[in-house]
């Protein structure tokens, strides 16, 4: 009897011990005070890509926080485009990804690239949230209605209605050259993204 209990106890313990350690992979800026909602650790990815590297990037036109409508097509022949889908406003990792991109405009410029930030949040939410980041040099687009339509086209809409943390690099011809559907809990490396932009020069 006791032996059985010991075995059960050890088994429970062993299972708990080998569970991957839940790592927080963010540091909050004090800019947001206590206004960041932490959803906890989520399933790394939760969608199936509908586009691929080498394929044509589906066109779209979305409303930006600034009020204008921005389409992917308007950059054809003019600029390389980086699309950064982030899951949700007012959440930990997302709240520092774009402020980081905000201080490396020169790196995007050097690679003749523009950045488009997209979430499925509505414009008022995006307005309040991005205001905390300082003045952003790139357009922030709302894929709110029809809900997540663009994310769906690319295959990065998760089953709970938010998007993946995904990066797409699209060249001037409108061809997708790089895709990173990142673990939603972690911020993608800036170095890797810049390396991919450099490759477009070759």
């Amino acid at each position: 009897m006791k032996k059985r209990l010991m075995i059960i106890s050890c088994l429970v313990g062993a299972v708990l011990l080998i569970m991957p350690e839940v790592r927080s992979a963010f540091a909050l800026s004090d800019a947001y005070k206590d206004n960041i909602y932490n959803p906890g650790v989520l399933k790394a990815t939760d969608s199936a890509l509908k586009v691929k590297v080498g394929g044509k990037a589906p066109d779209f036109a979305l409303k930006a926080v600034s009020g204008e409508r921005v389409s992917l097509g308007q950059f054809r022949g003019k600029k390389n485009v980086v699309i950064s889908f982030v899951p949700a406003a007012w959440t930990p990792v997302c709240s520092d990804q774009w402020p980081g991109y905000n201080i490396v405009k020169e790196m995007f410029d050097a690679n003749d690239a523009i950045l488009l930030g997209i979430t499925v949040d509505n414009i008022p939410t995006l307005f309040s949230w991005t205001n905390q980041m300082g003045r952003l040099w790139f357009p922030v687009l709302s894929d709110f209605w029809p809900h997540g339509a663009v994310a769906k086209k690319y295959g990065v809409l998760r089953s709970d209605g938010v998007t993946e943390r995904a990066l797409f690099v699209i060249d001037k011809k409108g061809i997708i050259r790089y895709i990173d559907v990142h673990d939603i809990n972690q911020r993608p490396s800036l170095e890797v993204l810049m390396g991919e932009l450099e490759k477009l020069k070759k």
Binding site: A27, L28, S29, D30, A31, D96, Q97, P99, I103, G134
Partner: peptide, 12 residues
Amino acid sequence: EIFSMYCPYCQK
């Protein structure tokens, strides 16, 4: 200083 390149307050 504990900072992050990604933190708007640290930038400011």
